[in-house]
């Protein structure tokens, strides 16, 4: 194998994950957003409130701690875009949608645990970047964790 073909193969090896990441990642994100929106409509009857105190404390019959979590990672294409963005600064839209998806999914999973509840109060959302890779620094995945108290009237 001469040097030229070797370089071309190497370039391909770098490009393939990025191209795959762009197409498949885009498709997956779209699918995820559709499912998020659908389920948000479906569970809209359970209000999630940031207030600390129940609106009608005397009527509450049952209370339970509920939570939901998800780990979502970014695709290779977006990671590249984000790295380029880092040079000039500004909004990194790629990461915005990643975190948005993670938080909304976590809230939905929390609601799924309390489908018969009338209200979920004192919602807290935690976000953490959990997978630090010692070799390459952060691999760009976040965990969103949502928890609250589900009440039944």
């Amino acid at each position: 194998m001469d040097e030229g073909t070797e370089i071309i193969i190497n370039i391909f090896l770098i490009l393939i994950p990025i191209v795959l990441g762009y197409f498949i990642g885009k498709h997956l994100e779209k699918k995820h957003y559709i499912s998020i929106k659908e389920r948000e409509k479906e569970y809209a009857h359970i209000p999630t409130i940031g207030l600390k105190h129940p609106l009608q404390p005397d009527l509450v019959t049952e209370s339970k701690l509920v939570s939901g979590s998800v780990v979502i990672s970014i695709d290779h294409f977006k990671r590249l875009v984000a790295a380029l963005r880092n040079i000039f600064g500004g909004n990194i839209a790629a990461y915005e949608s990643l975190i948005d998806r993670a938080r909304r999914e976590a809230i939905l999973r929390m609601k799924e645990q309390a489908l018969d509840a009338d209200e979920i109060i004192n919602i807290r959302i935690e976000t953490s970047s959990i997978s630090k890779n010692s070799r390459k620094g952060s691999i760009g995945s976040v965990e969103a964790y949502a928890y609250g108290t589900a009440l039944k009237y």
């Binding site: 995820h32 939570s67 979590s69 998800v70 990672s73 695709d75 995945s141």
Partner: peptide, 30 residues
């Protein structure tokens, strides 16, 4: 996280999306 999950997560990383192994791991630990 154990190595098997790490390798799977590394593959999943190309396309992005949920890393189910990590989600499970964290909720188990919690």
């Amino acid at each position: 996280k154990h190595a098997g999950r790490d390798i799977m997560a590394g593959l999943k990383n190309i396309f992005g999306g949920e890393l189910k192994g990590y989600t499970e791991l964290l909720s188990e630990s919690r």
